[in-house]
């Protein structure tokens, strides 16, 4: 009685084989539910509950504990600005304000068109390249307020089907925590992490 696409159900089955106990698959399945609908709906949580055999209330208890499961519709691009200590010291707040101002979307909101969501987040492990920003969890380091504005405009105009960290770093980034090695062709396709087992990794040619 699943409302998930056959492909997603196949992924779900595959994911469940990776854990010794069903319930351990809750977190990856919640990501699948997000990928399926663009956000984590109540129906999505009920579905996950059916897969692992727990009540929707139990699924909700887990889903609401973590910040990356977005329970209201989220923009195609989720811009996360770090304002934790290391980034704050180097102007993280100004970057956040620039992003909010340029996109017209305040922290925690999404624009009417459903294109951009903005949030400020705690440390994303990029203190060496502060201030840092993520778009759909793909990292850009060494961002200035002006570059941040450019990034927002670019997302609005170019509307990349796949969000690629290296590309954004080249266009809008500065100092990095360390060199990232070879360029990645792949990237994120929505406001959730791009990770092979989740089937959420998009490649530019596909886009």
């Amino acid at each position: 009685m699943s409302q998930w696409s056959e492909a997603t159900q196949e992924r779900a089955r595959e994911i469940m084989t990776r854990y010794p106990q069903k319930r351990s698959a809750v977190m990856p399945l919640l990501y699948l539910a997000m990928a399926e609908e663009g956000y984590l709906s109540d129906a999505g949580m009920e579905e996950v509950g059916r897969w692992v055999g727990i009540t929707p209330a139990q699924v909700q208890a887990v889903a609401t504990f973590y910040t990356m499961y977005k329970r209201k519709p989220t923009g195609k691009y989720l811009i996360s600005c770090c304002t934790s200590i290391s980034c704050m010291l180097l102007g993280g707040d100004d970057v956040l304000h620039a992003v909010e101002d340029e996109s017209g979307v305040p922290h925690g909101e999404t624009d009417p068109e459903g294109l951009i969501s903005v949030e400020h987040v705690e440390c994303i492990g990029a203190g060496g390249g502060a201030p840092a920003v993520q778009v759909n969890y793909e990292l850009v380091e060494g961002v200035t307020p002006d570059k941040a504005r450019e990034l927002v405009r670019w997302l609005g105009n170019a509307r990349p089907g796949v969000v690629n960290g290296d590309e954004m770093q080249e266009l809008f980034g500065g100092v990095r925590s360390f060199e990232w090695a070879i360029r990645e062709e792949n990237g994120a396709v929505g406001p959730y992490p791009a990770f092979q087992p989740l089937g959420t990794v998009g490649s530019e040619d596909k886009a």
Binding site: Q21, M27, L30, I54, Y66, T67, M68
Partner: peptide, 27 residues
């Protein structure tokens, strides 16, 4: 070997919270 992705909770770095999280519970 299973690569497991967290979902935004610093406390899951604490080893027993991490284990709960891996069991599909609140971290």
């Amino acid at each position: 070997l299973t690569v497991h992705l967290g979902a935004g909770a610093y406390i899951c770095g604490e080893e027993t919270a991490l284990i709960n999280s891996l069991e599909g519970l609140r971290g």
